[in-house]
Design a protein around this nucleic acid. Sequence first.
DNA 1: AGATAAAAAGATATTTTTATCTTTTAATTG
DNA 2: CAATTAAAAGATAAAAATATCTTTTTATCT
Lengths: 140, 140
Amino acid sequence: MISQTAEYALRAVVCLAQNFEKPLTTVQIANVTKVPEHYLSKVLHALVKGAIIKSQRGLHGGYLLIHAIDQLSLWTIINAVDPLKRIESCPLKLGAHKTNLCALHKKINQSMKLMEDTLKNSTVRTILDESSLIIPLRES
Amino acid sequence: MISQTAEYALRAVVCLAQNFEKPLTTVQIANVTKVPEHYLSKVLHALVKGAIIKSQRGLHGGYLLIHAIDQLSLWTIINAVDPLKRIESCPLKLGAHKTNLCALHKKINQSMKLMEDTLKNSTVRTILDESSLIIPLRES
DNA sequence: AGATAAAAAGATATTTTTATCTTTTAATTG
DNA sequence: CAATTAAAAGATAAAAATATCTTTTTATCT
């Protein structure tokens, strides 16, 4: 439903949000998020290209969030690495359904929109603030 | 978001619902739904195993719906071929998050639940009834 | 019983996603 | 400038999803 890659991206950004002062390296993020290190490196790169985070090479380098955490939605993060594509046109390519999706695809699309809207309305800050005793990525 | 396989299953069931009197063969369904014939055969088989449809071999055989179309939800169909798995436990396997998901996974899960609920509340009848000029799977 | 129709089952292939490993490039520090 | 650190880039591998093709089994009809 949400790809592994998207889940990894969300973890990485939450991790960066929890440590927003200093750059974190791939290895550090991998340790906290439990994402395979080398795969994470690709995901982080996608987030850089998607302008969610920025990277700094060399000593004391690593990754930093670009956005304020209350401006950054889960949807934005997911979309940077693995767009949740809605149904824009008839999957069967029926001409008659071009402008108007049929009830089946409308309904599927609507259900996906609800999910999308929820993710659009959830900022990283929401996630950090809602954590009480259970802190994202933290064991205790 | 919804797998290709699930989309195919939905199309197949809608097709059967539109022709509920007589069994339709794989080839017939494939033609209407524009699903690759041999792949469809696997999907239909999964629907049989999932007790959504029944099959009849031999001459005049094919597939038939088992359920009344107003008892059958899109979710049930999708689940038979490609379960939309919600987040049941912490993907990081953090002990502290065992009973209580963290805010991140709660939120992802909640967004998936909305989608799931929409699909649970949509029956095949809803889909057929809502079609006015635009009929599912039909060109004109 | 024999011919035919159609699903079931199984084998193989292709594509996409996820994961790993290595080499290259860029930044920092002494 | 040399050494070190870390991201970027590229190459390869493994796994999962999707697709195709062939053979087998079961049912129907004459």
